[in-house]
Design a binder for these strands. Sequence first.
DNA 1: TCATGTATACTACCATACCAGTATGGGTCA
DNA 2: TGACCCATACTGGTATGGTAGTATACATGA
Lengths: 242, 242
Amino acid sequence: MERDQERPGLRPIDMDSNEPVARRVFRELRRAIVSMVFLPGQALSEQEVATQLGVSRQPVREAFIKLADAGLLLIRPQRGSFIVKISVRQVFDARFVREAVEMAVVARAAAEATPRQIDTFRTALKRQADAVKARDNVRFMELDEAFHRDIALSVGCDYAWRVVEETKIQMDRVRYLSMADATPLGRLVDQHTAIIDAIAAHDPDGAQSAMRTHLREILTSLPELEKRFPALFNHDVGDAVP
Amino acid sequence: MERDQERPGLRPIDMDSNEPVARRVFRELRRAIVSMVFLPGQALSEQEVATQLGVSRQPVREAFIKLADAGLLLIRPQRGSFIVKISVRQVFDARFVREAVEMAVVARAAAEATPRQIDTFRTALKRQADAVKARDNVRFMELDEAFHRDIALSVGCDYAWRVVEETKIQMDRVRYLSMADATPLGRLVDQHTAIIDAIAAHDPDGAQSAMRTHLREILTSLPELEKRFPALFNHDVGDAVP
DNA sequence: TCATGTATACTACCATACCAGTATGGGTCA
DNA sequence: TGACCCATACTGGTATGGTAGTATACATGA
């Protein structure tokens, strides 16, 4: 029964742009949801968001629909829209798909990567290690994302990466929560290194198993997070985005 | 410079339903596009579709946006919306992702499937063989879709199947084109049988390679189709949905 | 004949208005 | 006191109006 907290949390929309307003609203809302500005379970009103951002309801509505497709928002007609709680089941499902796709990608990378591309990957690993040393978690998350993306793009798997991007949204809030902790980032860099080593050795099987190990890392922190932040999680037995 | 052909091709929207109009419009348009009622390259206007279906422009617009996300429609602001041509590149990319996901699914199925589920699959195989005997291609396509879906759902891979569904849209128009031909449907049933045999033998590797072989079948007919229907294909060197 | 400027008829995007359905809170009555 | 009813204030879904930008046909001129 809490009152409005006077905590808009939404950055104003850049008006000097010819990019469609709806897309900018979508990006801003997604950012706010993934970074926990809007908490799971919280209601979000088209009208309210429109007023806060200084736009009409129309583009906000389009953004809402896209967020619902992405599984971040539950639109209940004539009732309201709500930030969906984190579902362990959905995180598992997303991770399953991501693992399948990225394993196929690294197998291709191991088969096709050029020495020049491998050099680029090794440079990226160095940057990641630097970020870890500097304890710059936000920077590391950006580099991590770029690392996976660049592997995919290097072998022309643009569409596969797009699928991964859509899929990993379900995992991003978990990553955000675990970022605050002193996650063992060094281990992640080691895992990345193992992946690149296998790619450099043109060893598809090795690259696949290294990637699998890496992507299962998220499972380790999930139970603890669920215990620490029970209000953010959906504990239903069976669910999905209806 | 062709005139309106007086070929609406759109079935009227069922008005006695409380399902959102926008969703029904989306489904109808997707059906029309995938079944080549609207040809690749053809322009589609919000206003025109709204008039034909007897609804307002608003739900049509929402359907357009979803079609654009699905990669079936290209919205060019202030210019118009166009059915995207079939892109060999996109078909390849979609097939790559689909193969990755479905291989992971069958591996799980081979590990977890119960005798009862395997019986169900064998029954499905019989029905497929019957459809082939009856030369009922449409029926076979439905059974084929259900076959892949049921394998995924049987091991709880609901989300993975959703991803496959979104991905395979790019391949559906190709399937529609090849359906008209006397495609060797019997071979597809054989491949399905091989998949189930491996699942029944609890042989993940065998199931994976059987699934891979099966999903690469589409590649065989693609070059010929591109030659026969050049106008339906996009021959650009590099592209994607912008 | 051909290049160029311009009027016009589109387009999708955004804003606004209206509608049907739902949650809620307060008042009424048993 | 408690169960019920209804007014009210929301919600999202749909319809419609207005605007900026683009393509095209056509007139104009060299």
